[in-house]
Write a protein that binds this DNA or RNA. Structure first.
Lengths: 141, 141
DNA sequence: CAGTATCCCAGCAGATACTG
DNA sequence: CAGTATCTGCTGGGATACTG
């Protein structure tokens, strides 16, 4: 029985004990996918992962790369990615402070896995556009 | 420049004209991924896609399979998936009415692409659990 | 520079009553 | 059976001022 996701990235840091498909070993493929999506489904997670995959990046660097992100969300998303072991945070005790975020091997693997999705999206971009146009035309009356 | 997602599944039917990376041909891999996630990132989309991949399913059938889903969200998600060309809705004008939802080839392809993610999740389930435990321990003081 | 602390809101999602 | 219509809440996410 599929039970949906858990509520995406929690504000404070999700208590990972909620009813549903987040037990350690659930065979349902849908649940497994949802676990990944819950982890990187946030608005900025993927973008950060991509930036950090090209080598360590600094806070302000990310702030400039991710157009429109707020300081709040940048911090929050970084913390969650770090917590899940996808990023490593390194503080250089200099003045002014310097902090670098680096993607872990696990994160790079994840990024590679995501290429299957980019491939799908590339192949069906136009199909989807057509489908939407058809649907909207058929339902506009 | 990565610009995040657009706001996920729209309530009424998203106007697909928003600032960011949703233009027809954006090369940024992060943006491409986001487009897919925006499409199937909803709480119930994947679950529905999975169910419908085993053959046509009826509304009430889905309602029972997807534990905790509300009629409203089921309808909304079905409509969006249909609009994107991932599901085909067939109405049999009988009494009582019978409606079937079937996954399109495009949806099956998507589902196959998602296996890369399930694989990743399976491989790193434990790593993530450990990372979280470590993080939480290190930050509880 | 790299955050934290607040305030605030849009819209996703739940519950429920009604209908062709 | 297969929805639609409402009302309401939650929370992801934006803006911004302040700080070690």
């Amino acid at each position: 029985m599929y039970q949906g996701n858990t509520g995406v990235t929690a504000e404070v840091t999700a208590p990972d004990t909620k009813p549903g498909c987040e037990q350690a070993h659930n065979e349902d493929p849908a649940c497994t996918v949802r676990q990944v999506l819950d982890r990187v489904g946030g608005k900025w997670s993927i973008g950060i992962l991509v930036e950090a995959s090209n080598g360590p990046v600094r806070f302000t660097e990310l702030e400039r790369s991710l157009d429109g992100i707020s300081r709040r969300m940048l911090t929050l998303t970084l913390r969650n990615l770090e917590r899940d072991g996808l990023l490593v945070r390194t503080v250089y005790p200099t003045v002014p402070p310097k902090v670098e975020y680096a993607a872990t091997p696990m994160a790079r693997e994840l990024y590679d896995s995501l290429t299957a999705l980019t491939s799908w999206a590339d192949r069906h971009r136009d199909d989807i556009a057509v489908a939407r146009a058809d649907y909207d035309r058929a339902h506009s009356n």
